[in-house]
Design a protein around this nucleic acid. Structure first.
Lengths: 220, 220
DNA sequence: ATAGACCTAGACTGTACAGTCTAACCTACA
DNA sequence: TGTAGGTTAGACTGTACAGTCTAGGTCTAT
């Protein structure tokens, strides 16, 4: 493969920065797609359009490269919940919006790949598991818990233990859908949506607050 | 092509059967412990106290061995839910018992290992994912759904969609605990138990049947 | 005893990979 | 122009592995 790519403009920093970025980005994609063991340094080099030696100039080892990638990956993995309750929206609408966005995220190919990667490698890279949990899941739980606490304070909900309820909500909403996705089963979006709605309704039946105007409590 | 060579009645066929069993058992343990890629045929042979050639006499390839192991693994993976509602037990007690046993199973090292393996390999062995889902998860869901349906018929519960509710229940009960386990985080049994109880209570708040003072008989 | 089915040990082939080393090469900059 | 930093292709080492092949060993039924 003849190298000689277009001459780098000066001013965008040292060539090494650009190269390093390309390596990181390419390697991240490959690790997600093929796992740690399934991704050779040669492949990363080829895909990034870079010599293998260049990778070793930038990173001490394949493992070091993986670790370097990981924190970044973990950070962007769990986008913050779109938790802002809109002013006029009902609690059900707010939770549904939130659930839908969370499910969509959790079922996206990128997130499923990340999940697969982490589950598979957490044994060899224990701090990786802790990182994903801490910067990802735990943070999302905390955000949602705050939202539920606020909803309770305002009387729209009746949640005694917001952290536990948040975990229950997220588990219920993603649980089986995500499992099916990981198992390679199809996830028709209509069905996903139905399941999401049902989960939200179950959650609301369990945690509905004091009756609101126009919302008769009597329900047998 | 697993065990199709038994044309002669030779009676016992002792050596090969025993050998084959040892290989299967050893390989299953190693695959669970170290994953498919992390387990070499040499290692299996050594661990099983068998020559490598013997493995190749019994199985066409490492992959064939893996597949042969898998159905067995999938079968014993999800023990049937101890779903029998005891006569005198309250619904809460029954669900709690069920939840506890399910959680204990899901968090057991063997099941976490299986889960890890399946999640990691479902890409390369798609039918593996389908098998685990079908013989495992889907079956458990069906059982629990039947139980919920029966509870609803008796008026102890009010579940409109038993399948969906069963998935919600199982997701809620195992969701985060299992995730934490997979991530290598400690799972203090006291905390697991608390979370389990909370999940059961949430479920019951959502699906509690009509008040049961005299247990009004519901016929349909 | 002997034949056949099964087993063992280990040599062997071919492949893939991590990581090192070298020598040439490009670009910037003094 | 020359030097320095970074890059490149590719050769090289050592390891691990899947899978084959061979030569001989063990057990069992006839």
């Amino acid at each position: 493969m003849t190298s000689c790519q277009e001459p780098h403009e000066k001013g965008n920093g040292p060539a090494s920065a650009r190269t390093r970025g390309a390596i990181l980005k390419t390697a991240a994609g490959l690790f997600l797609e093929r796992g740690y063991g399934g991704t050779s340094v040669d492949l990363i080099a080829a895909e990034a359009g870079v010599a293998r030696q260049t990778i070793y100039n930038q990173f001490a080892s394949k493992e070091a490269l993986f670790r370097a990638i990981f924190s970044a990956l973990a950070d962007e993995a769990m986008m913050p919940l779109a938790v802002a309750a809109r002013k006029g929206a009902s609690m059900r609408a707010a939770l549904l919006r939130l659930a839908r966005s969370h499910v969509a995220g959790a079922l996206s190919p990128a997130r499923l790949a990340l999940y697969r990667l982490v589950v598979a490698e957490a044994v060899h890279f224990p701090e990786l598991g802790r990182a994903i949990y801490g910067v990802g899941a735990a943070r999302v739980v905390r955000q949602l818990a705050d939202f539920l606490r606020e909803g309770t304070r305002l009387g729209h909900l009746d949640v005694a233990n917001p952290e536990a309820a948040a975990e229950q909500f997220l588990s219920m909403v993603t649980g089986f859908q995500q499992f099916r996705g990981l198992m390679g089963l199809p996830a028709p979006s209509a069905e996903v949506d139905t399941r999401t709605e049902e989960a939200v309704d179950t959650f609301l039946r369990a945690f509905k607050g004091r009756p609101q105007r126009g919302m008769p409590r009597a329900r047998r």
